[in-house]
Design a protein around this nucleic acid. Sequence first.
RNA 1: GGGCGCGUAGCUCAGCGGGAGAGCACCUGCUUCACACGCAGGGGGUCACAGGUUCGAUCCCUGUCGCGCCCACCA
Length: 900
Amino acid sequence: MTGGVFHSTSMIESTYDPATIEPRWSEAWEKSGAFRPKADAGAEPFCIVIPPPNVTGTLHIGHALNNTLQDVLVRFERLRGKAVLWQPGLDHAGIATQMVVERQLANEGNLDRRAMGRDAFVERVWRWKGESGGQILNQLRRLGASCDWSRERFTLDEGLSAAVRKVFVQLHREGLIYKDKRLVNWDPHFETAISDLEVVPQETNGHLWRIAYPLEDGAGEIVVATTRPETMLGDVAVAVHPDDERYAALVGKSVRLPLTDRTIPIIADAYVDPEHGTGAVKITPAHDFNDFQVGKRHRLEAIGVFTLRGALNENAPKRFQGLDRFVAREKVLQALEEAGLRRGEEAIRHAVPHGDRSGVVIEPMLTDQWYVDAPTLAKRGIAAVEQGETTFHPRNWEKVYFEWMRNIEPWCVSRQLWWGHRIPAWYDADGNVYVEENETAAKDAARKKHGLKAKAEIALTQDEDVLDTWFSSGLWPFSTLGWPDQTPELKRFYPTSALVTAHDIIFFWVARMMMMGLHVMQQIPFRDVYIHALVRDEKGAKMSKSKGNVMDPLGLIDKYGADALRFTLAAMAAQGRDIKLSENRIEGYRNFATKLWTAARFAQMNECAVWDKFDPATPKVAVNRWIVGEVAKTAAAVTRELEQYRFNEAAGALYRFVWNVYCDWYLEFIKPLLAGEDEAAKLETRRTAAWALDQALILLHPFMPFITEELWARLGEFGAKRDRMLIMESWPSLDAALVDDAAAAEIDWMIALISETRATRAELNVPPSARIPLLLIGADDATCARLERYQDLIDRLARLDYSTSADVAPHGAVTFVLDDATVALPLDGIVDFKAEAARLEKEIARHDAEAAKIDAKLGNLDFVRKAPEEVVEENRERLNDARSAAAKLRAALSRLNVAP
RNA sequence: GGGCGCGUAGCUCAGCGGGAGAGCACCUGCUUCACACGCAGGGGGUCACAGGUUCGAUCCCUGUCGCGCCCACCA
């Protein structure tokens, strides 16, 4: 066997112990090279790039789901023989990482970031990354993720950084990246700009204060309403609606701005809603997005009154300078009160923008930033999805994607942080900017600009800012494959096959990859986007550390095994709904793993093994032909569902096959055969049982890689032929002709007979230990033959003394109906006939009700005329069945009544 | 203010035009020679509500109520 995994040859233990087995296989797979794409150039490529976890991250349940689903696909396609690459890596996560290290510095009582200086700080972050960053990748290994770990990339590694610079320079040359001074979302805690997506509105209790601004001519006042009185110090106008008659006479006049010595105009602008507040709005272009637009329209100056840390600056009156914005708010209100200018207030709830990382109130701030022309790039991203080059699964997420892409704003990509890709822009002493891939090229450009000779001294300073983390993430599908080099991997695997991610990241990441991939590579980054659910707690809330409602996947793996967790997540990953995860669900699937384990143990104990190629078309015995058909159906279903990303359906089909078909029935059926005398049948059965189990192991492997690999090996030690590890096996491709309808009908009949017998016994409280006879009355020859053929089996599973065909039911027999026959259990003296009469009456009533319902339906001429013929026919059959069953049971009831 | 999704068994969820399903929980039996993380049997649902389309609606349409999420500049 490849992989060189050895363990002692011994009986399979009675329960599965994941903890001792999982680490061994993780190592064996990786060592064997199974995670690397196969070299075979003819193999169809299949590639997924991992959503790179943050370098600061630890595995949470969302990662567990995301990576389980990817691994299911990846292992599935690998088994199908494709050349599979699952490209792993990490995201440097600008703000998140800088936060972690800054906090660490504080805890250690070290110099803070600013005191350390940029170089020392960045060095410190790298050191942290080397020591404790990226532990999540090892946690993914524990989950069983079969990434090609030899290709691990990091968004800040040399190659990816070069890709970032190249794209930035290219977009800049094309005019798709530019520098602009406009209002941005400013995070006063981190002192950086952030993008619209990083701003989260939070419903907050606030006030709407009314403030009087005195008219300059002394002829009264105009009252404005505001939630942010402190920004009034930067007001440059008061605006009213052009049609608002209350204020028509005031437009064009001026007011004295309280607390300052400035005079500002009253202007008319349709932006103002006369119904809202007082109908008069203070205009502060430097600190409000709407006001900025109004200011532009009216050519008003923008007066910024805040520092980058959110304190009042030198543009504010002296007495407010240096105060924090929220302190200033109180002071301004107090000063207005003293000036007699307050005109009341009301408490309101309103959405206030907060930074998603810092949690502080975001301040619109007028600054110079770099922007990506997203509206232009979005066009192709929209077209590619419209034309079906890239497809979302489920499709309805395309709406969300379109909605955002069609209303996209320029993307602010500069961040005033230190940890990240420094913007490849250099400035000369005159402030000219040179955007180049490196300083040498920038200097060349600068010399050219200034008409200097090559190698002439010229001093440039690089832009201080770094790029938004998502800029490099946007390049991930091609940068990780080696771009800008034309590597074999890039050629082979781009566009990638599928992207698997949660819906909360469509805008942040999926949309950006679409834009970047289409522009830079001229091709979509991935063909399919599978959007999976968010994992929520049992109340449906998003899990978060601060809420304390997290489920730790590593703890769950310790407790139940990685396979149980994986199977649970896959089984619950139905499209279109978030997952509310509860632990008892995992326990249930842990039990499933144990069930599989003990089934294999049974096979081993019964010397079931496949020594060589087994042809599933060869079995003669009906139970064997039947299970072969069930395997074929299951394999087809699992294949079909996985191709459509219906993980839950695939998992469900496997669960039902293993538990309800193979274990509940097939293994029970073959016990008598294995104990019998017919050596040929015994051999065939052993080989069929082994083959069916092997197929189940292969089909289950994408979901439960550890236990299936272990069993594959264990069974191999007991005779099954193994050419390689299970991970490298071939996915079953079974002819639909293997489904033998005749065998299935026969087995289904037997199952029905046994089930009905058991149910009847249980209902009448026949002790399980009581061996009773069974008589089959009025059956045709074929059915009687069936009974004879499976007598051993039926007697065993229905706990019978004997079973036989007969012409009439004896008096005092308990009966039920099976197809055209009546089954009689002579229980005279064993059961209470009042109970039996009651049971029969209940059954008769059930059949009568059914018959009445169908009869009414068939009595409806419109139904008979308009419904499809097969539906009508089916109903006729059901009516017949119900009537004949009721008749037989009535006969049985009357026999009971005449019994002595 | 727009948009999306969801209300199906006690819980968590599948199903989505023709006979209401699963897992867990619950009840009753069972030391049946793989498995008590098990076996066998069972109870439990006007498929949120009201209309409509249809021969037929849990499923399609409209509306109502409840819940969740996303987007949005209303001071």
